[in-house]
């Protein structure tokens, strides 16, 4: 289903959607810059604050690791999720409903799929920069004990792609700003329960399968296994799960976008 959808995509037109966003943010560089600032704060708060209180926790590959080493890769994944969801829900909703931007775009040869891909592409370009910076800071602070950590960057991109696609799909179902309360709740549930702050083993047995359903869990498990240097076959499973999210999200987003705007 998606292949037929993607075959007809003209990369130049999807690129024009990215170009528009680049142009807008060239003036808003301070917003871009602020994106780098945020992860530093989180690492700082975790390192000197919570890390001190917690001590060490079980590592994915066995043994224990200091809490900051454990939680930093999760923050990398969470950051990728947040960046992707904020851009594709709040910002896209504004463009869709209030700025009537997409009405104008779809009057050109640009198709809904190209539009969705363009918005997601921009979102990834941006969050890719942040993830790289975050990973750099982690390395400097000694939170990446393994060289596998280099692969955490493409992993973060994949996480971003998955959430951007899901976010776009979700946005097409939102009716008003008030519905964003639900979005916040969804983000919060994943943030708190997706194995971000604690190993999966800390949860009661009945909760674990639920945790494993969330895309963020797979993102966190993937980045954590990479930065702590213990990737195994399970990592491929996480990748596969995220790829499914990408395909599904993109397919729903393009279809719904067409239903909403091309009536």
């Amino acid at each position: 289903m998606l292949s037929t959808l993607l075959l007809r995509v003209d990369p130049r037109r999807a690129g024009a959607v990215v170009e528009r966003n680049v142009l807008v943010h060239r003036r808003g560089w301070i917003v871009l810059l602020s994106g780098f600032f945020e992860p530093f704060l989180y690492l700082l708060a975790l390192g000197i604050g919570l890390g001190h209180l917690v001590g060490s926790v079980p590592a994915p590959g066995g043994g224990t690791v200091p809490y900051p080493v454990f939680v930093a890769p999760a923050m990398l994944a969470v950051q990728a999720m947040n960046a992707a969801l904020t851009e594709t829900t709040f910002n896209v909703f504004g463009k869709l409903k209030y700025m009537r931007l997409y009405d104008a775009v779809l009057a050109t040869p640009v198709t809904p799929t190209e539009l969705a891909l363009g918005e997601i592409g921009w979102c990834l370009a941006r969050s890719g920069l942040y993830s790289a910076a975050f990973l750099g800071v982690m390395a400097v602070l000694g939170l990446t004990p393994s060289w596998w950590a280099v692969l955490a960057w493409p992993a973060a991109l994949l996480i971003g792609f998955a959430f951007a696609a899901l976010g776009m799909a979700l946005t097409t179902f939102l009716r008003s700003w008030q519905d964003f309360d639900y979005v916040v709740v969804i983000m919060m549930v994943m943030f708190m329960f997706a194995g971000t702050f604690t190993p999966l083993s800390a949860y009661p047995a009945w909760v674990r399968p639920l945790v494993e359903l969330t895309p963020l869990y797979h993102g966190v498990a993937l980045t954590r296994s990479l930065t702590t240097g213990s990737p195994d076959l399970g990592a491929l499973g996480h990748v596969a799960y995220l790829v499914v999210c990408v395909v599904l999200g993109l397919w729903i987003a393009a279809r719904r976008m067409a239903r909403l705007l091309l009536t």
């Binding site: 690129g15 170009e19 528009r20 142009l23 050109t108 040869p109």
Partner: peptide
């Protein structure tokens, strides 16, 4: 979010 000129140039880009 764009200027008057950019409204035209970016729109042109949508046409490739």
């Amino acid at each position: 979010e764009l200027t008057v000129l950019e409204n035209l140039t970016i729109y042109a880009r949508y046409f490739g």
